[in-house]
Design a binder for these strands. Sequence first.
DNA 1: TATCAATATCGTAATATTACTATATAACAA
DNA 2: TTGTTATATAGTAATATTACGATATTGATA
Lengths: 108, 108
Amino acid sequence: MGATKTDHFTNRQNQIATIAKALGHPARVAIIEYLLKVNTCICGDIVNELPLAQPTVSQHLKELKNAGLIKGTIEGNAICYCINEKTFNTLKEYFSKIILTVTNQKCC
Amino acid sequence: MGATKTDHFTNRQNQIATIAKALGHPARVAIIEYLLKVNTCICGDIVNELPLAQPTVSQHLKELKNAGLIKGTIEGNAICYCINEKTFNTLKEYFSKIILTVTNQKCC
DNA sequence: TATCAATATCGTAATATTACTATATAACAA
DNA sequence: TTGTTATATAGTAATATTACGATATTGATA
């Protein structure tokens, strides 16, 4: 036991869970918010911004990238990370649909 | 190590991360979608719907409840769970704001 | 009261995550 | 070429999560 039973759920359910999981850590939320704040794409000063060691930040960036929440472009010896709007749109639309459905429902 | 450094991040960042984390498992996404489907609040047949044992479902329900994504009302010896619209609204608004900010930005 | 049904909690094994240090890699500069 | 800077990867310890069987709890019913 201990492993998530991914194959018992739909692709859609796994997709949403994967994206949500990537946002399920305050450091990764902070990275997203930092990328929003600096307006232009920035790379390694995320490390200076967060109270975490460089390899830890790198690990978090990898997870955000795997989930499709950010994009990374190589620029010389640095890497320029920025937000991937598309995936955030997926989330927004998913939650919008949920809210539309719920408002027509009676609750206990 | 191993423990998330919660205290280094803002309340808002921790709040979003907590909610997202609760949705970061396909079983919990499936529970939300089932609650949406049945329209009216339902309790223990979530167990029949999911490929998981009763204690596991109970554990997942607890996490969804702690994150504020669902509400549970005692009805006799059963418990009626339903979606908590408010928290989903928090998420929707959070992502809407992100998208509004991002669309005005240049990416790498 | 005894039993049943619905749900929660306990204990625990398997696995995953988080964070770090040390080290590798890759591009640029001297 | 040698060093510097930026980032990734390897290895690993501490902790958290997932899932289950066994058991407790609580309300309804016979």
